[in-house]
Amino acid sequence: MNFVWQGIQDAWQLLVDGDPYLMNLLEVTLKVCIVSTLTAAVIGLPIGLLLGLARFRGRGLALTVANAGLGLPPVIVGVMLFVVALPQGPLGELHLVFTLKGVYVAQTILALPVIVALTAAAVRDISEGLISQARAYGARRHRIALLALREARVGVIAALIAAVGAGLSEVGAVAIIGGNLPFATQTLASAALEEVNAGRYSWAIAIGILLLGLILLISAVLTVLQYAGARNRVPRHA
């Protein structure tokens, strides 16, 4: 077990020294996480709201597809995207293969069903009476959407946390479409895999610590947002 302890000590030193490789991994990972989660949120929240609030033919099928997307294998997404993004493929002109842009796209595809399915589920839990009443008072669509997002805040932010978690820890699709290129498309999670394969455990542990710390930090911020205002829900008697 000595190598584990040695690994932790080395990792700490790498972190304290601000090793350029480690810092680049951190930068790439944050970029991928932020861009893919925000893009998935911009696309997925309206779709989740629509599936949660609207009544239309095919809604059940759409919900089933969204829920099935939660189990989407990242490796399959990576392979499919890689194939269509090859120069001779339909998305060849977008130059996604072995680029950070390709990693953003892959991670967005993986985060999207998480946000859609969990947002729809959270919104469906809102009191039907409240939404109907808002409509009866003539609330416009954007106001109903804002009301639903606010009422379903806990569930919606849980969806974002899940998407962030997937974005930070995903390896398969990132490695396939991005090529796992150091100082280019390599993220903390894909780098950790490479370091373990190469037997550089102190690096793997350092990367692991950084990745866990990042997940904890982002989750803490989102959890604070998630329950902001919960204090106000405790009965106060005027």
């Binding site: 039907e128 009476g129 939404i131 109907s132 009443q133 009866a136 606010r150 009422e151 106000n232 829900r233």
Partner: peptide, 13 residues
């Protein structure tokens, strides 16, 4: 204005 049967209130004051 229609006041529906179910008194759905938002999680606010």
């Amino acid at each position: 204005a229609t006041v529906l049967q179910s008194p759905g209130l938002a999680s606010r004051s």
